[in-house]
């Protein structure tokens, strides 16, 4: 419980509108230096590789090549779907965690966090076992006589979506939970008392009030989805191409680092644009 509360608090911190004073800035200095030297500078160098060699051709290719536009679009679509499903599935879970009695809340947190603490690889392999042609689902349906030939569930976009939603849903649930927890229940009572049927209470009051959490969670899930690698690589069976898979291919197989750097820069740019758009969407709640 404390761990989850801490997690929720850190999300709150990350997405809150803090105004740190100078001493707090100093406290952040080691982290900033760490990220600068071990992350920002190497990444920047990687992305500037093409320019360092005096050519912008890799960038031109990354921004105009048919393959790359298609892959970026494909990645964008998958990230959008993952975000949508994380919302549809994660929102009720966050609500359950908010309203459940303490024992159930504890159990609920456990269920959300256990997979969170498990390696992505293990979880992804678990899907292989479940969805395979001789996996649990197919064996059950076959032995029950419901189907005669195994269903092809693995190695498809739906399988990738399933695996990614499974991995990323906690990133949606925690920010939403932390917002839901702070909603004054009197507002719900007030809305009901003023004549709103339950669905109106949800649409007109509860949902808008949780929107900051929803946007935080969605941003997090979307950004993580854009760069996802392991799950699409394993569950996609090479049939679902995301930009990270392509970057890996250019780094490891083709040794074309200039182009990989350009692609990474494009991924970063698309991600930043998405982040900016969501930030802009969140501006609405500045007034309240």
């Amino acid at each position: 419980m404390t761990a989850s509360a801490g997690l929720a608090a850190s999300f709150r911190y990350t997405f809150g509108r803090g105004n740190p004073n100078r001493r707090q800035v100093l406290l952040g200095l080691p982290t900033v230096l760490f990220l600068l030297f071990l992350f920002a500078i190497p990444v920047a160098r990687f992305m500037l590789l093409p320019i360092a060699d005096g050519t912008i051709e890799p960038y031109v290719k990354a921004l105009t090549g048919e393959l790359f536009l298609l892959v970026i679009w494909n990645t964008f679509k998958i990230a959008a779907y993952v975000t949508l499903f994380s919302f549809l599935l994660g929102y009720p879970v966050a609500y359950f965690l908010t309203v459940a009695p303490p024992v159930w809340r504890l159990i609920g947190f456990f269920c959300v966090l256990i997979p969170f603490w498990t390696s992505i690889l293990v979880r992804t392999y678990a899907w292989l076992v479940i969805l395979g042609r001789r996996g649990i689902i197919n064996e059950t349906l076959l032995s029950a006589g419901i189907i005669e030939t195994p269903l092809a569930m693995l190695h498809s976009t739906p399988a990738v979506l399933l695996g990614m939603v499974h991995v990323l849903m906690p990133f949606f649930i925690f920010p939403v939970y932390s917002v839901m927890q702070r909603i004054d229940t009197n507002l719900i009572s007030a809305a009901r008392g003023l004549g709103a049927p339950d669905w109106r209470v949800f649409l007109s009051v509860y949902l808008p009030l949780t929107l900051p959490g929803v946007l935080s969670g969605a941003t997090l899930v979307f950004i993580l989805s854009m760069g996802f690698f392991i799950t699409p690589a394993l569950l996609g069976g090479g049939r679902v191409t995301m930009i990270s898979v392509l970057i890996e291919q250019y780094v490891n197989t083709f040794l074309d680092w200039q182009f990989a750097g350009a692609l990474s820069a494009v991924l970063l740019a698309v991600t930043l644009i998405a982040y900016g758009l969501m930030k802009w969407a969140m501006k609405g709640d500045k007034k309240w």
Partner: peptide
């Protein structure tokens, strides 16, 4: 009757105004 159907106006301790 559900609260929504009771036609009562209520003022809460902390006002419960919809912040959005």
């Amino acid at each position: 009757l559900a609260p929504a159907k009771r036609n009562m106006g209520m003022v809460f301790q902390n006002y419960a105004l919809f912040p959005h």
